[in-house]
Design a protein around this nucleic acid. Structure first.
Length: 485
DNA sequence: ATGTGC
């Protein structure tokens, strides 16, 4: 099959993978994790498959330009894209990370059951809404001096815990321990610092949310036990990122790298793939700047979680120890990181771009927290606000085939503007309430942009990665109440 | 995603 309007061919590999064989100046094949139905949906929706082929042109790319089933159109790289570049000869690209650097999720688990809070969801949603500032341009309850902000950017979750937001145990249950090394705040713009100063401890808008839910089904008893999950257990999912600070850093580095774009020595198929060699001054500066934004995001989620714990327990007039509110794990789904992977039988250092893709490391991997090392890394997959979310576990197959990566969510099927037109005149909040989900949102426009129909079916996405073996289903979580920006 | 768009 040929892709409409291009010379790209698409071949079926098996029930859940397709290949775009390399052609022209592509350095590697594209490999897309989809079934026939999802492939048809993607082709009908956007041109993100062309972006998979475009990424394959970048210097130093190893094995394949990968895409997960939640793939959709993004800046330069598709969202749902994974690309690993050789550290010595390869490039790093802001489009391969995305505007919301270290957008991610964390899941809180409790010791209580759905029946314990059945009649109090509205009250709990109101309490969370009050506890966590949200919406576009929302400012936090924390005001940072520039010096203090720089500590946040260097230390991430560690700063938050030192300031009394949460515990050491939370750090152990966060990807990278909530702190990427090599973060140099002096490499980011005054403007980025300015935007970050008032935004720590804010949720933001768009697809970011707080969600009270319960474990509806368990697929893998053994792993669920290791993750401390049980049927009907109440959970709280937090999804947000690095706010205006990360956005500004992305913007700044796209501009910086555009200036030296000729130094790449290749013609890019799309200027949005603007990159710098990892070894170059610009490449190193960007890597360091993404680390500051990643750390900001981890501190942000840590602080938000602390307020969620307080609001939740005080509403239920319960002791936190009684109801749990333990962190299961925190994952990041927009990042570029230097990792070691086996390529053609040899261990090599690569820069793994995960843009709308989640790390899914296997059992025994040293980067998986000790408490989960025997079973593998917990992977959190948020759905859209009307459907369900998933807990998965990382696998050896992901390590071998996808640089230890899997999907990140449902994935858009409609642009934001299309979703607004599509939902014209509808009362999304009431529709969700009829489905038994209580929603409180700062802006009504956000609800329309985030209408369930604007997203793919998250269960379909998850079924594909499960079947492909690049992560395995552990539990499905059903929402009861949602706070939106 | 974003003090939403140059």
């Amino acid at each position: 099959m040929n892709l409409k309007g291009s010379k790209l061919r698409i071949e079926k590999i098996d029930e859940c993978r397709y290949r775009i064989p390399k052609t022209g100046k592509m350095r590697v094949d594209g490999v897309i994790y989809v079934d026939q139905k999802m492939m048809d949906e993607i082709i009908a929706t956007d041109e993100s498959l062309i972006q998979v082929a475009n990424v394959a042109h970048l210097p130093g790319i190893q094995k394949y330009s990968l895409a997960m089933p939640d793939i959709h159109w993004g800046y330069g790289f598709p969202i749902g894209g994974v690309a690993a570049m050789d550290v010595e000869q390869g490039v790093i690209s802001p489009g391969g990370v995305g505007y919301d650097i270290n957008c991610g999720c964390r899941l809180l688990i409790t010791r209580i059951s759905k029946k314990d809070i059945k009649d109090r969801i509205r009250e709990l949603v109101d309490a969370l809404f009050k506890a966590v500032p949200c919406g576009v341009g929302s400012k936090g309850k924390i005001k940072l001096s520039k010096n203090e902000e720089k500590k946040v950017l260097e230390q991430g979750s560690r700063w938050a815990v030192k300031e009394g937001f949460g515990t050491e145990e939370d750090i152990a249950r966060t990807e990278e321990g909530g702190m990427l090394k090599g973060a140099d705040p002096d490499l980011i713009s005054e403007r980025a610092l300015e935007r970050g100063k008032e935004q720590l401890g804010t949720l933001g808008a768009g697809n970011h949310f707080l969600e009270i839910g319960y474990v509806e089904e368990i697929f893998d008893e053994k792993t669920a036990r290791a993750f401390n999950l049980f049927k009907d257990q109440v959970t709280i999912l937090i999804h947000c990122g690095s706010r205006g600070l990360g956005h500004q850093i992305c913007d700044d580095f796209i501009r910086i790298m555009m200036k030296s774009i000729d130094e790449l020595g290749i013609e890019l198929p799309d200027r949005q793939l603007v990159s710098a060699y990892i070894k170059s001054k610009e490449g190193q500066a960007y890597l360091s700047a993404t680390a500051t934004a990643a750390n900001f995001a981890w501190a942000n989620r840590q602080i938000i979680m602390h307020w969620v714990r307080e609001a939740f327990s005080s509403t239920l007039a319960a002791n936190i120890d009684e109801i749990g509110l333990e962190l299961l794990y925190d994952v990041c789904h927009n990042i570029a990181k230097i990792e070691e992977h086996e390529i053609d039988g040899k261990k090599r250092k690569v820069c793994v771009h995960r843009k709308g893709a989640t790390r899914a490391f296997p059992p025994k991997h040293p980067d998986v927290p000790k408490i989960y090392r025997e079973v593998g890394q917990p992977v959190l997959i948020p759905g859209d606000m009307g459907t369900e979310s998933y807990v998965l576990v990382g696998t050896q197959k992901a390590m071998e085939d996808t640089f230890g990566s899997t999907c990140h969510g449902a994935g858009r099927i409609m642009s934001r503007s299309k979703a607004i037109k599509f939902t014209k005149g509808r009362a999304i909040q009431r529709e969700l309430e009829n489905k038994g989900i209580i929603v409180k949102a700062k802006g009504s426009k956000t609800l329309k942009e985030e209408a369930p129909e604007a997203y793919k079916d998250v269960s379909h996405v998850v079924d594909i990665v499960h079947k492909a073996g690049i992560s395995k289903k552990v539990a499905r979580i059903k929402p009861l109440g949602v706070v939106k920006g």
